[in-house]
Each structure stands twice: as C-alpha cells, then as structure tokens.
Write a protein that binds this DNA or RNA. Structure first.
Lengths: 174, 174
DNA sequence: AGTAACCTACCTATCGATAGGTAATTTATA
DNA sequence: TATAAATTACCTATCGATAGGTAGGTTACT
C-alpha cells in the first residue's frame, strides 16, 4: 500500500469516529511514518484530502453493493444486501458511515467535500430506488429515502448508546 | 437573557451546524460581547459547556413534546407531534438535531458530553415507546427506535442534499 | 465588605500551510 | 547509449493563526 493510500485509510478511520475535524496532517503523517509537510505533497489542502476520501468511500461502497438487478436475479434481496453492508460497518468496523457523519456536519464542510458527500447520497438513493423497484415496491423513491434514513439513524443511535441491538431492532422487519 | 444563556445559545447554533469542534470560546465570547477568558467563569472547560448544552437541549426538547398520554387524550397523535418537532428544527432552524450530530461524533466526545447525548436518546426512546403504546402499536419498543432513527436519518440527508422534500417523503405515511 | 461578572495579559499546544532543499528514479534528448 | 532534464517522494524549518486554559486584577451591584 502506498503512503497516499495509507494516509487515506488513516484519515477514514479518524473521520468515521469523530468527523472532519477529527484528523490532522500531523497525526496522519505520524501514523504512516512521514512528516506532515509531506502529506501536502499528496493532498495540497485538507479539503482535497477530505474530498478524495469521500469520493473513494462512495466508490468502494457502491462496488461492494453490486447491481440491484443482478442481486435480484441471483435470488438475493438487494435491500438485505444493502442493510448487511451497514451492519458490517457498525459491527465489524465499529465506526459510523463516513458520509453519514460528514453529512451531519455538512454545513461546516469545505465545498468540495460537501459535494462528494452529496454524491454519496444521490448514488445511494438511485441504487435503492432501483432495488425497491426490483422488489415491486409501489413507491420505490419513497422506500429508498426511508431505507437509507432508517439505516443511518439506527447506526448513529447504536453507536451513541453503544448497543448494536438497537440497530437490529430497527432493521427487523417483523 | 444572561450572558451565560447567550453563550449557550450561540454554542447551540454552532454545534448544530458543524459539531462539537465547530465552536470555540473565542468565537462564542466575541458573539455575546465578552472576552474568551470570561467564558471560563461560566463554564470551567469546553466539556462542561458541551455537557450543559446537551442537557438543556434534552430538557427543552422533552418539555416541547409534552406527555404522550396527555397528547393522546387531547385527540393528538403523539408520533405526529414528535415528527413535527423534528420538522420544525429542520425547516425553521435550518439546523441538525443537536444530539443527532453529537451522537454521530460520539466516539470522540468528552465523557460528560457523551453521557448527556445518551440521556437524550434514552429519554426519546422512552417517550416514543409510551407514544406508540398509546397508539396501540403491537411492538412499541421497535416502533420507537424505528421512528427516531428514521427522523434523525432523514434530517441528516435533507440537510446534506439541501432539500427538505426528502424529509417530507421519508415521513409520509402513504 | 463581599461576591459576581467581568477584564488584561498571558501560556502551551496544535493547526494548516509554505519555502526551500535533497536523493532517487524516470523520461527525453543529443 | 550517454547525458541532461524533469519528476517523485520525501525532508527540515518555519509561518501566522487559533485552540483551550490560567493567574491575577478590576468593576459593579447588594
């Protein structure tokens, strides 16, 4: 893994625990074994780093999901696949969704970072709309916003109360 | 309004836009017309201010709600009253729920602040459980976590995408 | 006189960012 | 093929700004 990738990974962990202001160039540099000035070689400004971070996060997230139609075709419920990706983030990583946290602080983010967070949710809503359509939901657009809202909210509350059973209860269908 | 109350109000606005690190003693002081050192007279540390802020926010929130049984008795749907309080925060204040934002950054908060955020959600879940019980919901505990998760999530996404119609769509029952 | 609510004047730590430099590697040119 | 030029990936040193916090003095009200 290149230093740049290491920096992005270190930044992601920090942001997912405490938001955009929860990482500094010095901390990141120290963690990957270079100097803070060298971080500016890879990312001219902090906003550049934040934007690239959110962009890669979105891409990885979508790649991990696959295509709703293909999931459906292979006998899987795409909404359950989507839910499972959130569950994994909460249970395995023990961290918030990167864009869930950045979205909450949206108003205080640099423009280019906020744009990437918006991209995350626009793509997610598009994906979920297709997924609910494949599930023959009568109102796929509404089901999409309800699904992502519930998951982001349940994730946040489970983290806050340090009890994943809230996430399980919120995502239980019965 | 006392300087202390003014400080709390100024801090609340800033936190609701950008989280715990989005306010400083200097900024707060300057906004209410005193010096930063004087803020320490009212709040020994930043954590003390943050904790008191979350505590008062919780109290005001619960006070604005009233009691679920009384609402029901006066012909109102308590869940709609609850939803309306969130809608007001989003549409009128144009800001996130204070504890929704602090909850997301929960891992990086001082202990005493995190405890107050937990108090907010514990009280909210308790209130919502009673509300859903009054509505004869078969599983009030599950309905409670679903309600608050959906609202917090929808609020965050509407703020991020700068479009309140997402909140409306997510909270529409049909 | 006593206390509450400020003030001035600091401190240390850290922030993002910049200037200027270096060794190693890669690319382009004669 | 040999050499010159450019690029990559870092470095040291430092900048001005800002962070939270403290000691001790002043003002105003009761």
């Amino acid at each position: 893994m290149s230093k740049k990738e290491e920096l992005l990974k270190a930044a992601q962990d920090k942001v997912r625990l405490g938001g955009y202001s929860n990482f500094s160039f010095r901390e990141l540099a120290s963690e990957v074994g270079i100097k803070s000035a060298s971080v500016h070689y890879h990312f001219p400004t902090k906003a550049d780093l934040g934007a690239e971070l959110a962009h890669h996060y979105t891409n990885s997230f979508l790649a991990a999901l696959g295509e709703p139609d293909e999931l459906k075709a292979s006998g899987k419920n795409p909404i359950e696949v989507y839910t499972q990706l959130f569950r994994g983030a909460l249970v395995t990583d023990k961290k918030m969704c990167l864009c869930g946290l950045l979205g909450a602080e949206s108003d205080s983010l640099p423009d280019k970072v906020r744009l990437e967070v918006q991209r995350f949710f626009n793509h997610n809503l598009q994906w979920l709309k297709a997924a609910h359509l494949a599930n023959d939901e009568p109102n796929p657009a509404q089901a999409a916003i309800k699904t992502v809202s519930l998951l982001e909210g349940a994730m946040m509350i489970s983290k806050t109360l340090d009890d994943n059973s809230y996430f399980e209860l919120a995502t239980q269908t019965v």
